[in-house]
């Protein structure tokens, strides 16, 4: 009896303790990324094949940038899978940014299944030359 109760409680708590629970029975993959930094900002490109532009969600909270992509997979009903090398699903990945970003000027473009994000550095975060005077 006691054991049963414990199991039931564990099951009920599991989704919450694991954080986000998916409402769709989909796998979530980590998209491959290229990230580089220039003087003016950071550019990210993430591979999310199957994700349309309106399926992308980008959030920036403090310094944590989170990218989510929902693949718009339409599967013809007359077909059944006979061989698989890749799985279909959604994408999610988070990054902690090293510099302060001007959230207002983030530019995002999704083309051919690749999301490109341009994150301009905030004015105060840009390196500034300090003139040193001789006393």
């Amino acid at each position: 009896m006691e054991q049963k109760l414990t199991q039931a409680t564990a099951q009920a708590l599991a989704p919450e303790t694991e954080g986000l629970e998916q409402t769709r029975p989909r796998r979530v993959y980590r998209p491959l990324a290229d990230i580089y930094e220039t003087d003016s900002g950071i550019v990210l490109s993430l591979e999310m094949p199957g994700v349309p532009a309106d399926g992308v969600e980008v959030t920036l909270e403090k310094r944590v940038l989170t990218i989510r992509g929902r693949a718009g997979v339409k599967r013809p009903e007359t077909y059944r899978q006979i061989y698989a090398e890749y799985g279909e699903g959604d994408y999610e990945r988070s990054f902690t940014l090293s510099a302060d970003i001007d959230a207002e000027r983030i530019n995002a473009v999704c083309r051919h299944g690749v999301l490109t994000l341009e994150l301009p550095k905030a004015e105060e975060a840009k390196p500034r030359q300090i003139n040193v005077r001789a006393a």
Partner: peptide, 28 residues
């Protein structure tokens, strides 16, 4: 995806009545 020799692109095959569909991920 670790295919035969890291082959790109990874493919999935689908069978239909008298037809076959091949899908491949080609991001970018």
């Amino acid at each position: 995806a670790s295919t035969a020799a890291g082959a790109f692109p990874a493919v999935n095959l689908w069978a239909g009545p008298d037809s076959i569909a091949v899908t491949a991920e080609l991001p970018g």
